[in-house]
């Protein structure tokens, strides 16, 4: 996990994105995104619908191949790498639509992503975090409730030893008590040393878990706020997000 195998200078960024542009076919969606994350941080990417948050995560993960600029993870430039190589460096992605496989049961879904480095959580530890997944191990993945599917989508990337987790709107469409569980889970993951880049539209939720906030609009970063300055910037944030 955060105590990475690679030698890193203290306080160096785990992830540094600079001048990132990305395209879906001909349509130019990201216009020079910059962001950085230090080991152990939880950083949230805020922004309205269509701002480019998901696109930013997919570009970092390499799922969106048509991208330029620089994405350095633990000192390795990944801009030209395919997603499977980026995953092997220790980056893992939890998609907005959750991506649970219907032809796999819950435990097959959980054990699908291969271990990429040592230090990941064991199945037993994951079952402590998400007891429902143990009870429903033999159910078809997509037969779970929305909240359980979200937990499964997060749980399956904890086994792999990935140090950086990219979570795309894990609270979307879920009931308040489930959102509370997911928040508790993210805080526990932070305590275990995971580094997390979280995309959210739910600002109130993000405020309970994140150290810093980036705000995106039209494929660009338009603001950056640290947790201690949150109160002072609250009205500005409400304007950005239109809430």
């Amino acid at each position: 996990m955060a105590e990475a195998a690679r030698a890193m200078p203290a306080n160096a960024d785990m992830l540094a994105v600079a001048g990132l542009h990305a395209w879906y076919g001909e349509s130019h969606v990201l216009h020079g995104v910059d962001l950085s994350i230090r080991p152990g941080e939880v950083v949230t990417l805020l922004g309205r619908n269509g701002a480019g948050k998901t696109t930013t995560l997919k570009s970092i993960m390499g799922i969106l191949a048509k991208r330029t600029g620089s994405i350095v993870f633990e000192g390795v430039e990944t801009i030209g790498l395919p997603s499977n190589r980026i995953a092997r460096l220790g980056v893992a992605f939890c998609p907005e639509e959750r991506g649970i496989f219907a032809s796999l049961d819950v435990s097959e879904n959980l054990e699908l992503p291969p271990v990429v480095r040592p230090g990941g959580m064991t199945i037993a530890e994951i079952h402590v975090l998400f007891p429902n997944l143990k009870e429903r191990a033999r159910s078809q993945g997509t037969k779970l409730s929305g909240g359980e599917q979200q937990m499964l989508a997060i749980a399956r990337i904890l086994r792999t030893g990935a140090a950086l987790l990219l979570l795309d709107e894990p609270t979307e469409g879920l009931a308040p008590v489930i959102i509370e569980q997911i928040g508790a889970c993210i805080r526990q993951l932070k305590a275990k040393g995971f580094t997390i880049l979280l995309v959210e539209q739910n600002f109130r939720f993000a405020a309970t878990v994140a150290d810093r906030f980036y705000v995106m609009e039209h494929g660009r970063m338009i603001d950056h706020i640290v947790r201690s300055a949150l109160e002072a910037n609250r009205s500005k944030l409400h304007d950005y997000l239109g809430v």
Partner: peptide, 21 residues
């Protein structure tokens, strides 16, 4: 076989887990 079934459903995601699809 689980890799195969999963890649049949969503190859991009399976590749993003580190599999050479």
């Amino acid at each position: 076989g689980a890799y195969l079934r999963a890649a049949t459903e969503n190859p991009a995601l399976v590749q993003a887990f580190g599999i050479n699809v």
